[in-house]
């Protein structure tokens, strides 16, 4: 068992999408430093329940940092500021006794709040549906080794493909831009040979959809990269810009 902390929480409470919302304060007493941040919230919620109050609604699922469900801005930083760490993997030993911790949901027009800390990230799904795939039918494919992929390309594609779609990049960006997310997907698919035939179509469709969904644009501040729990590189945005530019020219749209 670790040390025990006493903390004050300021948590964003909002009953539904229409509600204007407010901060509410809670005491979190005797928080074990071995707890994860979300387990600390679990304990607070159990206390609220026992007092007959409604617990704080927040998203989480795998709690091992891979599903991308958890989403909260902790003391001003999405996922809480430990490098390469999602909120669910953030542990209380990162905090000190007596601290006040402020927790807010992701804020972006494209991610409307549904309740408390829960937001709707379906905009990401719609971007993916607009072109984030390689069009192959089940079964109609060549042998996996028929198309060699240079190790460097596969590795770089994997760097991009690691994105967990949590939306922290959008939450951190002063412009609520989704460029890092889209760039990661585009780069992954354009780095492997299987993705070449649809390359331009994909770039145009995904970028257009991204704009339609109401995300802001990139002003290269780098905050997305700084908070990304998978540490996805800003370089992929440059790759996306090139990809998009080339697609515009080749497809004759410009």
């Amino acid at each position: 068992m670790g040390k025990l902390l006493n903390l004050k929480l300021r948590v964003w409470r909002q009953d539904n999408a229409e509600d204007s919302g407010r901060f509410e304060e809670y005491d979190a007493k005797g928080v074990d430093t071995d707890m994860s941040f979300l387990e600390m919230l679990d304990v607070v919620n159990e206390d609220l329940l026992e007092d007959g109050k409604e617990p704080i609604a927040f998203d989480s699922d795998c709690r091992e940092g891979i599903c991308g469900t958890c989403s909260m801005v902790i003391n001003g930083t999405p996922h809480g500021g430990q490098k390469g760490t999602t909120a669910c993997q953030l542990h209380m030993r990162q905090f000190s006794d007596g601290m006040t911790i402020t927790i807010e949901p992701w804020r972006a027009s494209a991610f409307p709040v549904q309740r408390d800390l829960v937001v709707n990230r379906s905009a990401f799904d719609r971007i993916q549906q607009s072109g984030g795939f390689i069009s192959v039918r089940s079964g109609s494919v060549p042998d996996a080794n028929a198309t060699p992929v240079a190790k460097e390309d596969a590795d770089l594609a994997m760097d991009a493909a690691q994105c967990i779609g949590c939306g922290a990049c959008v939450a951190a960006c002063k412009n609520a831009s989704a460029m890092l997310f889209v760039a990661a997907k585009l780069s992954h698919l354009s780095l492997v040979p299987q993705g070449q035939p649809e390359r331009e179509r994909r770039a145009l469709a995904m970028v257009q959809k991204m704009d339609e969904e109401g995300f802001g644009s990139c002003t290269v501040t780098g905050s997305c990269e700084a908070v990304c729990p998978k540490e996805i590189s800003l370089d992929f945005i440059a790759r996306m810009n090139r990809e998009y530019g080339m697609a515009l020219i080749r497809k004759g749209t410009v």
């Binding site: 795939f133 079964g139 060549p142 996996a144 080794n145 992929v149």
Partner: peptide, 21 residues
């Protein structure tokens, strides 16, 4: 067939330097 299918979808499986899986 699964491996063929996934490779065609662009799953970045680990590769050897020769480009094979």
């Amino acid at each position: 067939n699964i491996i063929d299918q996934c490779a065609a979808q662009g799953v970045p499986f680990a590769r050897e330097y020769g480009g094979l899986l």
